[in-house]
Nucleic acid binder design. Sequence first.
DNA 1: AATGAATGAGAATTCATTCAT
DNA 2: CATGAATGAATTCTCATTCAT
Lengths: 215, 215, 215, 215
Amino acid sequence: MAVAEPENTTRRRAPRADATRNREAIIEAAAELLAEQGTTVDVREIARRSGVGMGTLYRHFPKKEDLVQTVLHKDFSEWAESARRAAIDAEDPWTALTDFYQQALTGYARHRMIMENFALTWSVPDIEGIRRLRLVIEQLCARAGAAGLLRPGVTTDDLLLLLVSLGHAVQITDECRPQMWNRLLRISLDGLCADHREPLPADAAPDTHRPNQDG
Amino acid sequence: MAVAEPENTTRRRAPRADATRNREAIIEAAAELLAEQGTTVDVREIARRSGVGMGTLYRHFPKKEDLVQTVLHKDFSEWAESARRAAIDAEDPWTALTDFYQQALTGYARHRMIMENFALTWSVPDIEGIRRLRLVIEQLCARAGAAGLLRPGVTTDDLLLLLVSLGHAVQITDECRPQMWNRLLRISLDGLCADHREPLPADAAPDTHRPNQDG
Amino acid sequence: MAVAEPENTTRRRAPRADATRNREAIIEAAAELLAEQGTTVDVREIARRSGVGMGTLYRHFPKKEDLVQTVLHKDFSEWAESARRAAIDAEDPWTALTDFYQQALTGYARHRMIMENFALTWSVPDIEGIRRLRLVIEQLCARAGAAGLLRPGVTTDDLLLLLVSLGHAVQITDECRPQMWNRLLRISLDGLCADHREPLPADAAPDTHRPNQDG
Amino acid sequence: MAVAEPENTTRRRAPRADATRNREAIIEAAAELLAEQGTTVDVREIARRSGVGMGTLYRHFPKKEDLVQTVLHKDFSEWAESARRAAIDAEDPWTALTDFYQQALTGYARHRMIMENFALTWSVPDIEGIRRLRLVIEQLCARAGAAGLLRPGVTTDDLLLLLVSLGHAVQITDECRPQMWNRLLRISLDGLCADHREPLPADAAPDTHRPNQDG
DNA sequence: AATGAATGAGAATTCATTCAT
DNA sequence: CATGAATGAATTCTCATTCAT
């Protein structure tokens, strides 16, 4: 009994397995509640739904914000990764871009408030996650550009901002008019493609262009 | 022009006439603070910044939400009206549409959190205001459509959702990269114009279209 | 116009008639509201119902308690007076006593909270009114005693306390079971009358007496 | 008797076991303060006097009214129970009735405002408690009636109302003239006993009876 | 003399965080 | 290590009283 414990021994009354289980239960409950109620959710409700005591919750996440950031990070990562996969699986560059947006925006609806707050509230979250997402888009952009499918002048940042912008449309419309955002995506992609005679200027003001009457 | 009126003098805390003045001071302070901190602002801070006591604030707005709604409504109305003016002043239909978005989105930045909450939090605010805005867009849409400038199949709701969607982009980027959203607007308008061979189908999925290689 | 005003001249734009009218309106409204809601009623509601401004109300009654006391005093006086009248109109001493209680208790229901508070809340109200009421009872007591109708040993204070005690019963039962208190009055009066062999001792403890079995 | 338990030691702020202790401290403090000041007491003062923080108080009683009701219920139960005991211990039916009133009314003084509010304020509290009290009286009534000691026609409700009515007398007089209410009780019991020739009619109006002159 | 807007000290209630068991 | 009771500052809202017009 008093012998130094070997680390590998099977001890059932879990010292670490439980901790992991708890941590994940907390994150899962928090993800649900943050999605439902936003960051103003009561910490005690998170503890209740995850089935742990306040003390346990605070052992894992010393501040409420720590928990929020963790959930944000996790949700964001999973979402970004699924979108990346969709792009990789596509066969040609334009389909890759299209599928990427399609997948990313479809997933956006599940992240309502979180993504919302992600952009706006409580300090800057998960810079690293955004950097990775940006890399994905950069590759899509380069690939489509090299194939001559993307309108000249379009930058990675344009595509990133378009994603966030459409994401907001998804959040607003998904419940009452699902798939309405798909029309907006189509419009934007048409505006992005190489069909357009003129490249996108660096300081594009929209009124420099006028469509052909009765085109 | 007229003789100097004694009532015009700046007197602090005049009662009857200043009920109005107080009301406006409260709304102004609330607008600022709501923009800065969102709907969680402390009511006392609004009272403090507007220079009135708690009682006065609550005489004018019996519930915190009443005040929030009032500010929301006012901001929204002013913003929508300025965008409408910009559209009316334009000479041709496409410029009207373009100027409308330009003006609306430029104004969006000033309304940060409020517009944010407008779409997402605290019940449904100001249905009437949205209805009026929608009417404006409907006219723009009809006018541009009649002139053959607008891509067939584009609806008023598309244009409305585009506005909100780009509005979000404005809010996110306005501080760190002002005018970046203008590029997105240009892209979207290009996707909207009649240059496109195919009309926008009713259930547009973006992958139905593929750009001309090396266009 | 500038001549010194004679005090007797008929001036229509009432300086004092209005004041009186206001004062009475305030008292009337306060009486109603105090009866409905007790002393926690909002002063502004009194002002509203009486149709005067807060300033006017506070000109007449500098403190809320002043108003409450005034209403208390008035209600109490009127009530006591009506009971006194009923006693005077009666022909023989016992009927006088009986009618006095009957009238007083019937009126009690209208004074709910006020009478309630009268005995219990907010300092001592209207000592003078109680003194007058006591005088009335004293005479009834003496008259019935002299006629040999009243049980020996019964004091004026006994009769006064009985009144308040039964008054409470009235307040509690008047709405749900009107006239139920009449049974209690009958019982008490029977206990008061001279039929009883033994006089009421000075320190009457109830267990000194035992009724005749199957009397 | 048992070995000294370490858990019995007076330790301030022990958590689990002291949840109970806190709860009782709160109830005790609330009972005192409610008796002193009525239902308008500041909740913070209750917290202060019971030595707990606001949060603790609100953990046990989510609304102020919950606390008030709890205190009301507890006080009422204890009081009713002590009166019931007194009645059970008596040897003959009439003494049981007498002792019951004696005990009940003696206890009434300790419950001042609370009993006051019990009858008058804040919704209907503790119907169940009243029902139990009524059962006790019902038995006393039946027992005394069967022994031929109680005046025919007297109902359980008469006795219940008499209790409340005399209770009010107790509250009013207990401080300034203790035991004065005993005289009233004696009078009422004499009115209740079977010595009276006529039974109490169903709709007893007091003037139907007239005492024997020079009884 | 009348008006009702303004005042601000309270009062009830919530919630992030700590801590004894 | 887990638990959940305890804490108390912060927050929304009320109301007796004052005061400028």
